Amino acid sequence: MPTTVWPSIRSHVVRATKNDACGAPVIGPKSTIVSDGHISIKVSPQFEDGEETAPKNAAGKIAFVDKAQDELKYLNVEIAFLKVDPELFNMVTGQPIVLDHAGNATGIRIGATIRSNFGIETWSDVPGTACGPDGKLYGYALLPWLKDGRLGDFSFENALANFTITARTEANSPWGVGPYDVVLNAPVSPSTTPLAGPLLTPIAADQHIHMEPTPVIYPAPTAGAIALAA
């Protein structure tokens, strides 16, 4: 089978999905939101170093060296935004929304740490590649279960204020193939045209991030959080 090698540049949108305490996407109102107000998404893998054993004999010489395999603990994720999006910030940090006189979400308050659970997706461009039979490719990335989103440092000055959210991934995600159509699925007889559908294989218990190219275009930004249908 041929292998697809693909570069990645830019990031068009971020889609956040509210997860329950066990990491499963929440079906219901105001459970998903798409924003193009981010600046960057930084992912930093965190490993637990395997224990090393190197016993020495009476002459001080190493008898042998054995090192256990390093293990991935989680990924630290840092997302920088160029504007305040109250419902997005609420979804990823759990902090309360501020409403105006008409009941519209206009702000957010930051107080005691609140446990939050959510998933993040983004779509990048795949430069230098010709459109294939299924159309233009995008680089799709999924972090199915993030926890404990926190607001980082920011400042008010004679420059644009950037707002950073940090979180970490969790193993044993029940995301499965996901609630969204993000890749092409095999044609359904009698059709010969592949259709947009969920991931082809479920996210495994020890997998923290999923990346692949897809011709399924990213979703349009939403006006705040919207319902996630079953």
Rank of each mutant, 00 (worst) to 15 (best):
Y138R: 11
R115A: 13
I165C: 07
P133R: 14
E121R: 06
A68K: 14
R109T: 15
V126T: 09
H101K: 14
A112I: 03
A102F: 11
L75V: 04
G94M: 07
I120S: 00
A105E: 06
Y74K: 10
L143G: 06
Y74M: 01
A141P: 02
K136T: 15
F118E: 03
K83I: 00
V126S: 03
E87L: 00
L99N: 09
G132R: 12
L75C: 00
V92C: 04
A68W: 03
H101N: 11
L151R: 14
G135D: 08
T169V: 00
I62F: 02
G139N: 13
F118V: 02
A80F: 05
I110C: 13
E170K: 06
R115H: 08
D125F: 04
P86C: 09
R168F: 08
V126K: 07
K83D: 14
V65N: 01
N117F: 03
L143N: 06
N117T: 03
T93P: 05
Q95E: 11
I110E: 13
L137R: 14
S116R: 01
L88Q: 05
V77R: 02
P127W: 08
R150V: 15
I108D: 07
K67H: 02
I110G: 10
M91G: 02
L88A: 05
N104F: 07
G139R: 09
L72E: 05
C131E: 15
H101L: 12
K147C: 12
A105M: 08
R168K: 13
H101R: 14
I97W: 12
G149T: 08
V126N: 03
R150E: 14
N117M: 00
R168Q: 10
K61W: 01
K136I: 15
I165T: 00
T122R: 08
W123G: 03
F163S: 02
T93R: 05
D134W: 13
L143E: 03
V92F: 06
L82S: 06
H101I: 12
L143I: 11
N172W: 09
A171W: 00
I114Q: 12
N90Y: 04
H101G: 08
T106E: 12
K83M: 10
W145V: 02
L146P: 05
D134E: 15
E78G: 06
E121V: 04
W123P: 00
F89K: 06
V126E: 01
E87K: 08
F163P: 01
D66H: 09
I79H: 02
K147I: 14
L146M: 15
A105D: 06
G132Q: 14
L99R: 11
A159F: 08
F154P: 01
N104P: 05
S124W: 05
D85L: 13
G111F: 11
K136H: 15
I165V: 15
A105N: 10
V92Y: 00
T164D: 01
L72W: 01
I79V: 15
T106Q: 13
D125L: 11
L88P: 02
G128F: 10
L160Q: 11
S124F: 00
L142R: 07
K83Y: 11
D125Y: 08
T106A: 07
F163W: 12
D153N: 15
N172R: 09
F154R: 07
